[in-house]
Simulated assay, not measured.
Amino acid sequence: MAKQESKVKDKVKMKTLTPIQKEIVTALEQMKEKSLITEANLAKKVRENAKISGKNKAGICLKDLEVCVEYLGENNQLPYTLHLNSANDILIKKEETWKLLDGDAKKRRQSSEKAISVLTSGDLRQKASGGKGLQKRNERKKLSFRDVEEY
């Protein structure tokens, strides 16, 4: 009976996760045999699982990853700790207890996220709705200053 209640609680908590967070949790569970997971490897696994064709260089948002690590840690399934290397890449280590980034590292990572592309739930929605993929802009419309003078 207690096992069923814990499964129900896990499902309720899983429902509170956003779609991208669910994909991250799934990827972390699939990579549980590794003791060290890099952000790039995790993002690659998420793209594989979700069948996202674009955003090959995209990383994982720190906010989403923290929620996922906390979720897995509280359920005592997979205790991970987050670390940040000198290039502001996230490293995920399997340890005895789960732990998030400290204040300085968190600020450093959040400021570097402004310059990088990260995977979002919108990427999953675009794929699910059959939306257009990334398209290059081949033809640029040019406006002649002579046309402007006529108006």
Rank of each mutant, 00 (worst) to 15 (best):
L101E: 03
L101S: 05
S86H: 04
S6T: 10
K127E: 15
Q135M: 07
K114V: 06
N85K: 03
L42G: 05
T38G: 13
V67N: 12
D123M: 07
K32S: 14
G131R: 11
L28G: 06
G130E: 10
T16F: 06
L72W: 04
L17M: 05
K22S: 10
G73E: 01
V12D: 08
G130D: 06
S144Q: 11
K44I: 09
E23N: 03
D123C: 02
Q110C: 06
L82I: 01
A43S: 15
Q77G: 06
R108E: 13
V148S: 02
A115Y: 05
L36E: 14
R47N: 06
D102L: 08
S117E: 15
N85W: 04
L143W: 05
E149V: 10
K44L: 11
N76W: 00
K136Q: 11
E96R: 13
K51P: 02
N85Y: 03
G130C: 05
L143M: 05
K9Q: 11
K55S: 14
D10L: 14
K106F: 08
K114I: 03
I60A: 07
K9I: 12
Q77S: 07
G103Q: 15
A2T: 10
L17R: 03
K22Y: 00
Q4M: 03
T38V: 05
W98C: 10
M31W: 04
N88V: 00
A43H: 04
E95D: 14
G130R: 05
Q21E: 15
Y71G: 00
R47E: 03
M1Y: 01
K132D: 09
S35H: 11
Q30H: 12
E113M: 09
K34W: 09
A115T: 08
V8L: 13
Y80K: 00
K132E: 14
S111D: 11
K7N: 13
I90R: 00
D102K: 12
E70F: 07
Q135P: 02
L119A: 08
G59C: 13
S111N: 12
V46Y: 00
T97N: 12
A115V: 06
S86D: 10
A27S: 15
E139R: 13
K63F: 08
E139M: 07
R47G: 01
L134C: 06
K106L: 15
R108W: 01
K63M: 06
K22E: 12
K93R: 12
Q135C: 03
S35Y: 09
K132C: 04
K114F: 03
Q21L: 02
P79R: 07
T81Q: 07
A43M: 08
K3S: 13
D147C: 01
F145C: 01
S86N: 11
A115N: 11
N138A: 08
A27H: 10
I92F: 06
I52E: 01
S6C: 02
